[in-house]
Design a protein around this nucleic acid. Structure first.
Lengths: 228, 228
DNA sequence: TCGTGCACTCTTGTCTGACAATCTAAGGAC
DNA sequence: GTCCTTAGATTGTCAGACAAGAGTGCACGA
């Protein structure tokens, strides 16, 4: 972590900017798992007041990107196998409902199709970070297209952790971009065909595969630590 | 709203206590829909600092019990028909997944059974507030029993609004306690029988009925306003 | 030598007071 | 009557401070 940092002034609120900056650094692995983030550290690094840093930390905590208990320092969480399973179970619940609803209308969300293209480009250029980014965007677009504010908010509550996990294990990840793209395409196809059950099934398969890939890399990562 | 208020010192944090106190007052209708809650008002009423009040307001906002945009005063939201439908669609998604998972194990959650009893007592004694409270507890217990931290967190994200809506229309509500109890019993029965599909179906029916009851009372309430 | 307990430090929770930026609403000009 | 300006209200952010809880290491005793 560099001793100085500059905030983009895009977002209206200073807290927003700080939140967004730290969020990115966590999900792309720049701030590694297990790292502690104190309020004063964040405040001094970004040159903001402690309450502002506190607010940003609380928001990150709410989205699962940090863990924090009373009077204790916030920590970037390390998700174990059980938690990854729980994460994907929850994710499955939301996204299944989303694709089913979309298939009922038969309309393929344009943002999802766009993200699908972005994934292919990123994969071709070996830009892993962009690939993860686009993958998250794809799934987020699917949920958003349903038009349910609350479904999206619930999804937002867990997708951060998905992003975190994928980002943290990025280096270890055996990229299988074509596989991912094919699985995504199958989901979109089922939506276009207006087949809710098929859409849900394809999505379930895709997420199971994704979970499996993550658990494998997680296992490999822990093996490497043991081997040292 | 009284000009003075006392906080119970149960919760460790002052913010927690404030949050909990205001939460109760919102969901039971003491603070009506559309009411504005400024930071200073809350701070002076409870005799706490503005930052503390701010934190409590932010938490309430996160759970949908207040609406707040930048630089604007927090307001107790008024849910229209479309939002109630969205709310129940989201709720359905979570709770269906929950009862299906429970039925797969075949174990009836004790807390849910306990809440079921509480509903009956409250209904018999005409304690509407307790009845609502116990109903929320029943559904929360179902989700909690799955043991998925993230599913529970997502549920928490929307159940507050359900509570709010039920509480706010409490006065208008035509109580149908036996009906509710029977619908709940059917869900528990299906779980006990280990039948996930039946459990999901009974839950879906129950929530559709509940939504219908709410929309009806909502309609009646708006009619009354027009008639004035 | 090892374990227990105390003190110290770090960090967070909360407070007071303040200023700037923004939103709301009231009042005046046309 | 409508639009614009201006004043008040409200929130965002800041600085500095103190108390309370959590963690750590050292000293002391067994």
């Amino acid at each position: 972590m560099s001793t100085e940092a500059r905030l983009e002034l895009g977002p209206s609120s200073l807290t927003d900017a700080l939140y967004e900056s730290v969020r990115k650094r966590i999900v792309n692995g720049e701030i590694p798992q297990g790292e502690k983030l104190t309020e004063v550290r964040l405040a001094t690094e970004y040159n903001v007041a402690r309450p502002t840093a506190k607010a940003a930390l609380e928001r990150l905590t709410a989205l699962g990107l940090l863990r924090r208990t009373a009077h204790k320092t916030a920590v970037v969480p390390v998700l174990d196998q059980a938690e990854i399973r729980d994460l994907f179970f929850s994710r499955m619940t939301i996204e299944k409902a989303a694709v089913s609803a979309l298939a009922a209308t038969g309309e393929v969300p344009v943002d999802a199709a766009r993200a699908q293209v972005a994934i292919e480009y990123a994969a071709r250029d070996r830009l892993f970070e962009n690939q993860v980014e686009a993958d998250i965007a794809f799934h987020t677009a699917l949920v958003a297209a349903v038009g349910s504010r609350r479904l999206s908010r619930m999804h937002e509550l867990i997708i951060g952790e998905v992003h975190l996990t994928m980002g943290q294990y990025q280096a270890h990840r055996k990229a299988a971009p074509t596989t991912v793209a094919e699985e995504h395409a199958a989901i979109l196809k089922a939506i276009e065909d207006g087949n809710p059950d098929a859409a849900a099934d394809h999505l379930a398969y895709h997420l199971e595969q994704a979970q499996g890939r993550l658990l494998t890399t997680l296992q490999q990562a822990s093996d490497e630590v043991v081997a040292q």
